[in-house]
Design a protein around this nucleic acid. Structure first.
Length: 552
RNA sequence: GCCCCCGUGGUGAAAUGGAUAUCACGGCAGCCUCCGGAGCUGCAGGUCCAAGUUCGAUUCUUGGCGGGGGCACCA
């Protein structure tokens, strides 16, 4: 849709240059937008305003000159110069009828694209430590990452969903010791629960499971390893099951400990040292972050000789770059901002291109039950888990509501609201529009009317303003998808769907708009229109990972 | 103290530097002989403060004020 206007404008620009009416040599980056106010036309461009500076002339004058130079087209109903110098384009109904024909012909492919260059993109998300069940906060991360991946796929890119499995380091030892203590308790033996151990009930369940499988044979285990390994597996299975219920699957699970085994950690450290980015102080090794633009230097190898978490993280990201991804997306909670900057700085110190790594930082989720804040902490285990949340309100509601906000705003998740089946709960609003259209189609079929093939539809019967408005909205969808993908912002899709559903519900409620009528030709045209809405709602919901039911 | 995110009608949120700031909830007033009222129509109500950049600022810069989060040889 925007391409059409862009081609008209670049043609006008070219002709104006040939006519000596412009000094500017190249067409500048310009915006083509759907104006907020429909009175401003279907699409508007700020080209004249952008050119005003380099031309040294008032923008309105430039706009009028460009308007005269625009090529003729039967698709163009009117071009006006308005406000400070906007060019407003009003497109003819025939243009919109053709767009609807495309929506119908492309079906579920509508909105999906073939990129000029197919990128290999990695989206790393969730990456929760296997020390306990996923929290509601992990849920936001999971839904964001998965929908970003879906958006990138819709734009034709090759996407790898990756989970960084943080199974090295002290926390895993604490996990193992926590389970061991519970196990010894069960066997009636003295035990010392670690001070910073994991308190959750799930630790007891894992210990019980171990006892069921091995009896008391593990009481004399030399170390925590059998307990850790069993816990790691049990917890990870639990995490995977929760994600499965959220319709999320990963292509790659990357184990942190593999970085130790294959020598990556040592190599990165040696290379950082060779680059002069590491110094020794107080028996530890420090990464010189201050000379990489960060506020403070940080320890990279502790005085105990163990790497601090930054080192494996940097090694992991070097590994990602070595795997040849064009783009690397890290979906992270707000508590990882500093770490992400450190990793990127580390990559720069290694002489690598950190601009291919993009961090999507999301703020925290707070849970409200009956207006009361629900406390969440993995170690103390007073939380509502993601799994419990999904059981309570369903995956559709969780996904939709998590994607109904920009990532960098705090999200208050109100459980009562999420369970309401009304407009306060927007997921039903959108799904209901889809179900309603499915019902119209059933109604038509029960009266013996089937939709016509797109080529046979009399689109020109759709002459009402609200019908053309709906088509305009549908036609925006492909641009919306590419913009949401480019910005890695799935919430744009959510807002678009709410908008589209509202346009449809409004249309539906005017009785002169009854889809199924005696006029067969008009009925078929309207079936094509609402069919297009249904198609785009289904496609949009799919990008969010939300189902599009035919009945509710 | 330093760093990051956010301050938009009563509430929760949108808005690549664009025009008269959008949407929902709540409030008020209405709409079902008709394809599903989980719906629709109308009204009232808003950009934290102060400078700056710009033809134009909710958006960018600086400084306040307010809320949240991070500032370990934890991950």
């Amino acid at each position: 849709m925007k391409e059409f206007i862009h081609s008209l404008l670049s043609e006008a620009f070219r002709k104006a240059k040939e006519g000596g009416e412009l000094k500017t040599s190249d067409l500048p980056p310009l915006a083509i937008d759907v104006p907020k106010d429909p009175a401003h036309g279907d699409l508007a461009s700020n080209l004249a305003l952008v050119l005003a500076r380099s031309e040294g002339r008032p923008p309105r004058q430039i706009a009028e000159m460009l308007a005269r130079r625009l090529p003729q087209s039967e698709d163009l109903a009117a071009v006006t110069v308005a406000g400070p110098g906007f060019l407003n384009f009003k497109l003819a109904p025939r243009f919109w009828w053709r767009r609807l024909a495309e929506v119908c012909a492309e079906g579920s492919r509508f909105g999906r694209r073939t990129p000029r260059r197919r990128l290999k993109v990695q989206v790393e998300f969730v990456s929760a430590n296997p020390t306990g069940p996923l929290t509601v906060g992990h849920g936001r991360n999971a839904v964001l990452g998965d929908s970003i991946a879906r958006l990138l796929e819709a734009c034709g890119h090759e996407v790898v969903r990756e989970y960084y499995f943080n199974n090295a380091g002290r926390q895993m030892l604490v996990l193992g010791e926590s389970v061991r203590a519970r196990y010894l308790e069960r066997c009636g033996l003295p035990s010392s629960f670690p001070q910073d151990g994991y308190q959750g009930e799930y630790i007891r369940e894992i210990a019980a499971d171990l006892e069921a499988k091995h009896g008391a044979t593990l009481v004399g285990a030399a170390d925590h390893m059998p307990f850790q390994q069993h816990a790691e597996r049990a917890i990870f299975d639990d995490i995977a099951a929760t994600l499965e219920r959220m319709r999320i699957r990963f292509d790659v699970h990357f184990n942190e400990d593999s970085l130790y085994r294959d020598g990556s950690i040592d190599r990165v450290l040696a290379d950082l040292r060779a680059a002069g980015a590491v110094y020794d102080k107080d028996g530890a090794q420090w990464l010189r972050l201050t000379s990489l633009g960060l506020p403070a230097d940080r320890v990279i190898v502790k005085s105990s000789g163990e790497p601090a978490y930054r080192l494996p993280d940097i090694a992991y990201h070097r590994n990602k770059l070595e795997r040849g991804f064009d783009e690397i997306v890290d979906v992270l909670g707000a508590d990882h901002i500093a770490e992400h900057q450190e990793v990127k700085a580390g990559l720069r110190a290694l002489g690598l291109d950190d601009s291919r790594v993009r961090g999507i930082i999301h703020q925290f989720v707070t849970l409200l039950r009956a207006g009361q804040l629900v406390k969440m902490s993995t170690r103390r285990a007073e939380y509502v888990t993601l799994d419990e949340l999904v059981s309570e309100v369903g995956a559709d509601v969780v996904r939709f509501l998590f994607l109904a906000r920009k990532a960098d705003t705090h999200l208050e998740f109100d459980l009562e609201l999420a369970k309401k089946q009304s407009m306060e709960n927007p997921v039903y609003y959108v799904q209901y529009a889809h179900a309603r259209i499915a019902n119209i189609v059933r109604k038509a079929q029960s009266e013996g009317v089937d939709g016509a093939a797109p080529a046979d539809v009399a689109f020109h019967r759709l002459t009402q303003e609200d019908e053309l408005t709906i088509i305009r909205r549908l036609a925006e969808f492909p641009d919306l998808v590419s913009e949401a993908a480019a910005e890695l912002e799935p919430h744009r899709v959510t807002f678009y769907l709410l908008d589209l559903a509202a346009a449809f519900h409004g249309y539906y409620n005017r009785k002169e708009n009854r889809v199924v009528s005696e006029d067969l030709e008009l009925t078929r045209a309207r079936l094509a229109l609402v069919g297009g809405v249904r198609q785009v709602i289904a496609g949009g919901l799919d990008l969010l990972g939300v189902s599009a039911p035919d009945r509710m």
